[in-house]
Structures are given as C-alpha cells and as structure tokens.
Design a protein around this nucleic acid. Sequence first.
DNA 1: ATTGCTGCAAACCTTTTGCAAGAAT
DNA 2: ATTCTTGCAAAAGGTTTGCAGCAAT
Lengths: 148, 148
Amino acid sequence: MGEETWSIDDILATLRTSGGRITATKRALVQALVETREHVTAEALTAAVQIHAPEASPSTIYRNLEELEQLGIVVHAHLGRAAAVYHLAGPVHGHLLCSRCGVTLEVPSTLFEPLVHAVRRDFDFDVDRHHLAISGVCGSCRDAELHS
Amino acid sequence: MGEETWSIDDILATLRTSGGRITATKRALVQALVETREHVTAEALTAAVQIHAPEASPSTIYRNLEELEQLGIVVHAHLGRAAAVYHLAGPVHGHLLCSRCGVTLEVPSTLFEPLVHAVRRDFDFDVDRHHLAISGVCGSCRDAELHS
DNA sequence: ATTGCTGCAAACCTTTTGCAAGAAT
DNA sequence: ATTCTTGCAAAAGGTTTGCAGCAAT
C-alpha cells in the first residue's frame, strides 16, 4: 500500500526496470515531485520542469505522469472541478478541500478507517485510500462567513 | 439538511417565491430531475429536456441547474474526471465510485458520521455531506480481477 | 538500428460567458 | 413595460492525441 518514501534514484531505477527510457524531462519531473512534497497540478509541474528543460511541453508531463502512475509511483486526485493534483504515492492520506478558498488539507487516513471498513462490510466496496477527497468549508472560511 | 422529497410543484413554487420565472425549459428540467431519481449528467438532462423543448440549449441547463442548486433543490458531485452528476437534494448520502466500471453506489451518510465529526474536531473543517465522493473498486470488479 | 519519447498543434470535452432577441411577470 | 431568460456561438480550462522527428537504449 505505497512505499515509505521514494528517492529520485529509486524512481529512475523503477522506470528503467519497467522498460521505460530516462529522459531529461522525466528526470526533472521526478525531481520536482520529490522536492515538492505537496499536491501539485500538472501545470505547476510543467513550470517546475521547464526551469531545467525549457522546451518541455504539458503533453509530455501528462504522459510522464501517467507512466509514473501506472508504476504506482505517483497518484492523482480530483478535488472538485479544478485541475487534478498529483503527488508521490506515500503514506496514505485523505484530502479535505475547502469549497470557499480552495485550500487542501491532508488528513491521516486513520480518520477514514471506520468508513473504509463499514463500506467494505456493507457494500463490498474497496476504498482507494489515495483518492479520498472530501469537500466542505474550512474553519477560516466559516469564521469569515459568520462575521459578514 | 435537505427536504424529505421534492415534488414538481414544490420546486416550481420555490422557484417562483425566490423571484425566478418559470419557463418551459425549467419546467421540463424539474420534471426530468424528479422523474429520474438517479445521478445524471448535464448532458443527459439536456437530452431529457429536449424531448419536451427541442430548442433547449446546454447553457440554459447549466444556468438552471445552478439556480436550483443555489436554492438548495439540487446538488451536484464530481466523481472523477468525467462530467459532474446532478440530482435532487434529498436524504443526504455519500457516493462510492468504482474506478473500474464507473458504477456509482449511494451510501447512507451515517457511514460518514465518524469521519465528519473527527474532521470537525481535529481540523475545524465542516464536511459538505452532499459532496462526499469516495473512489475505489466495487465487489464485482474486484472479483472479476481475481479470476483473470 | 530500433523504437520509445518528444514538441507542436490541433482536437476534445465539459462548462462558462457575451450578446441581442424573446418571454414571463 | 420591465427585466429575467433564452439560444447561439464562441471562449475557456484541462487533458488527450496524431504526427514526424529526435534520442535513449
């Protein structure tokens, strides 16, 4: 259920082993993913990669991300209507997305365990813990609303 | 936290009371929503409305859906990368989306209560119960996978 | 020498928006 | 008469794809 941590070399090795080729774009993408431990959009990753490889195109980023995802290195989540966010598969966690300000909070997956088990028991459904995304209103936005 | 059930007349009355005007498109849309108790895309709703009002355009459907949503009559959820699904606000429930076959299961929101409370307590975050969407793999797809 | 990867540009899909004409009140 | 709504068409935003050339193996 996800490695502890991925190093750049881990990832490149996995990429090679799977038959993929290592390109400058892939290297820069992997580096960006490892360095920013946050949830980033494909657009942000493209920008990061372009610092090192100015010619890199969004389509390549998408293709590389898909390759990494199929290897279990990267996961993505859809948080509402906006662009998907990508991050390294790591310690599993859920996402709380504020529908007012858009902030994303990561919460430990332990919070979801009761739900995960109930859903498996009652609905024979295996929750993908990586894709957990719950929307609502964060404390700051709720407070701001009360004052208006 | 949501009415028990909406009738067509309930909805039209609410629409009128709020200052909105009743048009043929709105009437057909409301009828489609009440009749199909499922989760439908804007595209499907457009098709349903066009049976009665062939000239209705998708943009009008979107605008009407937004109006209905602001009145608390309709809610929508984003289940993955595909089009959003809309349905009448009713007994609150969560969604389980199978990432293999795309089926959507509705589950009672009681399953989410432990999570909702933990998240409020620990993260000061108010979950929007209508938007709960959890992805994973349904029993049929898991079984099919085991046999392959 | 293979053949996987790339950038570019264009296509795609869902949703939003501008606008002038039309319709509900 | 007022002004809310509509249809159309175009735009927008995110993602995917076709293709010919480039590059990693």
